[in-house]
Every structure is written in structure tokens, then in C-alpha cells.
Write a protein that binds this DNA or RNA. Structure first.
Lengths: 231, 231
DNA sequence: TTAAAACATGACCGTTCAGTCACTCTTTTA
DNA sequence: TAAAAGAGTGACTGAACGGTCATGTTTTAA
């Protein structure tokens, strides 16, 4: 639950990085942030691969040499850009998995899923543009600057499978599908709903989308108890 | 149900295109095909935007000037590459919509969906690499060479919504969601299942995936009749 | 048969890009 | 405070790219 919103630079000097609160460290954080936040809208509008380093540095009001001081290249920038989102997402998933493993009743299982939904919604609200960028690029080939995004996508799938396996082992799923296929189905539906929602500024009504998501997941796991008793 | 598998060139001469079975026409079809089929594996491996015209022409054993004789540029190549797939997909969807509108019983509605599933499976088996490429690039920004892919994606969504609306108006859906959100959910799940399946050569068992897809759709529309009586 | 159109080729051109570097200024650390 | 490391800059370089074109060949259509 840490409030770390800063982007880590890809390169950090070895000999004199400066004290943690000093001018160098603060400046490094600020420049990294400026570059990352200048790059993101360009990536969203034109795609990661087509945006050049020159464009990014111009948009960030930073010289080209400074970019290469903090990053090896575009791939490392992409990795730094997504690092906070990846951390928050994976930690939320891991917390949910912990709660699921500790759950004694079906109600606690439902509660764990609901808590996860709330935490993921928070992540979405905090960084909708990064989420949009992820959805836009997450099926890219594993070559070039988008490698970190594709890696993140695999982690999303794996984490979803892990969570689904808990429900699967507890016979909570209505479907007779494997946990893997169930997870891939749910992730695909969720990601497409999110993408279409984020892609149209006019299609408001976020509650309708969240309702669709929660309904879909809960609909698939009403095997034993009716979901009446959850906190 | 025509067997047109040929890729149309983007540019066709006005004054002397040659007779339909003549040398020029045949040569034009052949060169267009060579370029398209050389480009596809490159697009799959490295992404549409990063592949250069030089690479494509080298892979196709064609001079650069010849490429620009048949295509304005990469975007037109992409359009020609996907045109057969788009045609087959949309025609199958339209046939299904016609059958749905003519359906007198719920059993006929189910039958229409089943026929569609079979036809789409055939499309997938005929051109799995183009489908994979579509899934890989279908969320690209509407700029550059991938514009036709994004357009196709919107058509897929719209066609799915149209089909879902029929089931929605007939009160065949178990869900209380709008037809739009239902369609986006189903398309997202389907596309992700297909992509993960096509992306891993080892994950065999196509019947498991198809079973997941059919089960998911039919599971969502068992409102009135039990789906016993369908041809 | 013949003139015009289409075709094929790859050298060529202007532009753009990633990455480097010399130079200057700032910060750290001892 | 002084020396060394870090930081900022933008010009520069070499490679690569999209697109064109001059040249020569093949096909069409009359």
C-alpha cells in the first residue's frame, strides 16, 4: 500500500549518486518523471514503436543527451514507465492470493475477490493512461521496445490463472473448463471492456462497465453458496 | 461462399491492364501474392510498424520499385493483406444476421449461431496467421500503416453487437447487460482465447478452446428453451 | 508489326533516426 | 575548497529508410 508513484531511472550513477534527499536524487526523479510523462501521450497517440527519441525529448523539454543519461533507449524507458503499474497490480494480485489461501469459507473467498476488484479499480483510476497504453500494446511481438509490455501481459495472465486455480480447486466454478482457459477468458473479456471504455471518451457510465465486470466474474462462480453473506 | 483467395493489388493500371486471364493480370496477382505472403511472417515476428519496405521486398524477391508499382505504401499493403479475411468474416456475420432475422423459433436461433461458429472456425483454419496478426495489432492507434487493422477491429465489434442485439431483443440472454457490453465481453474473451492459443505452438488441443468458446456463448443464452432441439 | 503502356530493376536522393561526444556547468565528497 | 563525478546541451555521424527515376524489357492493343 506504499504511495510510491515515482518512475525509476534505468541508469543510476555508481560513484556519486548523491544522498536520497539531495539535489541529484531529486533532480534525477524529476527528469525521469518528465521524460516518462512526455512519452506516454505520444505512445498512446502513435504507438510505441513509431515514436522517436527526438520527439520524446522535445516534448519533455530535455536534451537528447540527457535522455541517454537516464535510459539505455526506448525499451528501458518503457520498462520504467510501466514499473509502478506492474508493482501495484502484482501486489494486489498477490494479496488476493494470500487471502484466498487463508479463506476458511466461501464467503471469505467472495470477499477476497471483491477486495481485489476494489483495489484494481483504484489502480485504474490512478493511472488510466498507462492502463490504456498497456491494453493497446500488450499483444506486441517480443522484440524491440515493447518487450516489457509483453512481459507484463504474461504476468497478468499467470496471476489470473493462479487466482482462478483457487476457485477451481474449491469447486467454485460453474464451468467445467480448466483454470487456465477460464482465466484467459475472464482476462480477455475484462481487457476488452476496459479498452473499449478507455478508447471512447464519450462512452461514459463507468458503473455500467464495472457492473458488467463484477457480474461476469460472480456469475461464473456461483456454484455452492448463494453470494449472500459477504462483508 | 466464393473461393477468392487472391490479394488485390492497391494500384491497377488504367489503360492496358490486360485481359482477365492474360499474362499481365496473372503476373499482377502473383506478385501481389508474393509481396503479401512475404510481409506477413515479418509483421508477425516484429510488428507491422517496425518492418521496412526494403525487408519485405527482399523477402519477396522483388525490387523495391515493383513494390511501389502495386502499392502506395505499407498501409495499402496491409489493407490488401487483410481484405480476403475481412470479406470472409463480414459475409459470414451477415449471413448469420440474415438467418437470425428469419428465425421463427429459438431452435433456429441456436442453429444460426452454430452455423456461424462453424464458418468462423473454417476462416480461422484457412488463414490462422492473418488472424494472429489481426489479434496482435487490432488495438493499434488509428495512425500509420495499421489503420486498416483497426478499422477491421471496429467492424468486428459492430457486427458482434448486431448479432447480439437479435438475441437481446428476443430476450434470449441470461445477462441483464446491454447488447453492446455483452458483445464486447464475448469478443474480448474470444479474441484472447484465440490469441493465446495461436501464440503458443505447444498449447495444442484445439477442441478444448473451441469447446470453451461454444460453451461460453451458449451458456450466456440459455434463457428460455433448453437447447435440446437444434438441427 | 508497331507504338504505347506496363513492368522490373536497383542505383540514387533527401530525410530522419539512434546514438555519441566535446564542452560547459553543477553537485558531491573528502 | 578543490578535485572528481554527474549533469545538460545540441551539433555531429553513420546508417537506414521511404520514395523516385532512368534504363531496359515485356506485354498489350490496334
Amino acid at each position: 500500500m506504499s504511495n510510491e508513484k515515482s518512475y525509476a531511472p534505468g541508469r543510476v550513477p555508481k560513484q556519486r549518486p548523491g544522498k536520497v534527499g539531495g539535489k541529484r536524487a531529486a533532480n534525477r526523479v524529476e527528469r525521469t518523471r518528465a521524460i516518462c510523462e512526455a512519452a506516454r501521450p505520444l505512445f498512446l497517440q502513435r504507438g510505441v514503436e513509431t515514436v522517436t527519441v527526438d520527439e520524446i525529448t522535445q516534448a519533455a523539454n530535455v536534451a537528447k543527451g540527457s535522455f541517454y543519461r537516464y535510459f539505455d533507449g526506448k525499451q528501458q524507458l518503457v520498462r520504467s514507465l510501466f514499473e509502478p503499474l506492474v508493482e501495484e497490480f502484482l501486489s494486489a494480485m498477490q494479496r488476493c492470493e494470500g487471502r484466498l489461501n487463508a479463506a476458511a469459507s466461501t464467503a471469505e473467498v467472495f470477499s477476497a475477490y471483491e477486495t481485489l476488484a476494489g483495489e484494481l479499480a483504484l489502480v485504474l483510476l490512478q493511472s488510466p493512461e498507462s492502463v490504456k497504453l498497456y491494453l493497446q500494446e500488450c499483444r506486441a511481438p517480443s522484440e524491440g521496445a515493447r518487450v516489457p509490455i509483453r512481459e507484463f501481459s504474461e504476468q497478468v495472465t499467470q496471476a489470473a490463472i493462479s487466482l482462478t486455480e483457487v476457485a477451481h480447486q474449491r469447486k467454485l466454478l460453474r464451468t467445467n473448463l480448466s483454470a487456465r482457459l477460464t482465466a484467459i477468458t475472464v482476462v480477455g473479456a475484462t481487457e476488452n471492456l476496459l479498452f473499449r471504455f478507455l478508447d471512447r471518451n464519450d462512452l461514459g457510465e463507468p458503473h455500467e462497465v464495472t457492473g458488467a465486470l463484477v457480474g461476469m466474474v460472480l456469475d461464473g462462480i456461483r456454484a455452492e453458496d448463494p453470494p449472500a453473506a459477504h462483508s
